[in-house]
Simulated scan of single mutants.
Amino acid sequence: MNLVIIDGQGGGLGRQLVSAVKDRYPDIEIIAIGANSAATNAMLRAGATQAATGENSVIVACRRADVIIGPVGIVIADSMLGEITPAMAQAVGQSRAKRILIPVNLCDNIIVGVTDLSMTKNVQNAVEILGTLID
């Protein structure tokens, strides 16, 4: 399975995702793509197998991905304070991969009807959904 985790800003969510996936599935290879180098480094330190940074890395990784996990902002152009370019959002949205998107009500994107859970619980839920795709 080609698992891609995408994050931006400081990479806190991406770091939590990489760590949680590695804890539950230690043999899975994770490709971490950061919208910036801080996010990439955070995910690498958490145990990502490979990592890259920037727009073209998102585009290439999305072409090869079976599953993409990240905050919902990765499919919204100009989200995450402008870190997600239109090309990045398009690549994620048009990928044939299954997308597991974490609701984050920040940066003027509010998701209605989603229970307000802690980020830790959202990460746990994402890993559980990944498990159904693996099994």
Results as ranks from 00 to 15, higher is better:
residue 26 P to V: 10
residue 26 P to N: 08
residue 27 D to E: 08
residue 27 D to N: 14
residue 28 I to P: 00
residue 29 E to T: 01
residue 31 I to A: 08
residue 31 I to D: 05
residue 32 A to H: 00
residue 33 I to E: 07
residue 33 I to R: 09
residue 34 G to L: 06
residue 35 A to V: 10
residue 35 A to I: 12
residue 37 S to D: 15
residue 37 S to T: 12
residue 38 A to S: 03
residue 40 T to L: 14
residue 40 T to P: 09
residue 40 T to W: 05
residue 40 T to C: 05
residue 41 N to Q: 11
residue 43 M to R: 00
residue 44 L to C: 02
residue 44 L to W: 02
residue 45 R to W: 10
residue 47 G to S: 08
residue 48 A to C: 15
residue 48 A to D: 07
residue 49 T to C: 14
residue 50 Q to R: 09
residue 50 Q to Y: 13
residue 50 Q to I: 15
residue 50 Q to M: 15
residue 51 A to M: 00
residue 51 A to I: 01
residue 51 A to S: 09
residue 52 A to W: 07
residue 52 A to T: 13
residue 53 T to A: 08
residue 53 T to G: 15
residue 54 G to K: 06
residue 56 N to M: 09
residue 58 V to E: 00
residue 59 I to Q: 01
residue 60 V to M: 10
residue 60 V to F: 07
residue 61 A to N: 03
residue 62 C to M: 01
residue 62 C to A: 12
residue 62 C to S: 12
residue 63 R to I: 07
residue 63 R to L: 08
residue 63 R to C: 12
residue 63 R to W: 08
residue 64 R to Y: 05
residue 64 R to W: 10
residue 65 A to L: 08
residue 66 D to M: 11
residue 66 D to C: 06
residue 66 D to T: 05
residue 67 V to I: 14
residue 67 V to A: 08
residue 68 I to K: 11
residue 69 I to K: 02
residue 69 I to L: 14
residue 70 G to W: 00
residue 70 G to Y: 01
residue 70 G to Q: 09
residue 71 P to D: 03
residue 72 V to C: 11
residue 73 G to L: 04
residue 73 G to Q: 04
residue 74 I to C: 10
residue 74 I to T: 04
residue 75 V to L: 12
residue 75 V to T: 13
residue 75 V to R: 06
residue 76 I to V: 15
residue 76 I to S: 09
residue 76 I to T: 10
residue 80 M to K: 09
residue 81 L to A: 15
residue 81 L to V: 14
residue 82 G to V: 07
residue 85 T to D: 11
residue 85 T to I: 03
residue 85 T to E: 02
residue 86 P to A: 10
residue 87 A to Y: 07
residue 87 A to M: 15
residue 87 A to V: 14
residue 89 A to S: 07
residue 89 A to Q: 07
residue 90 Q to T: 14
residue 92 V to C: 07
residue 93 G to C: 08
residue 93 G to A: 15
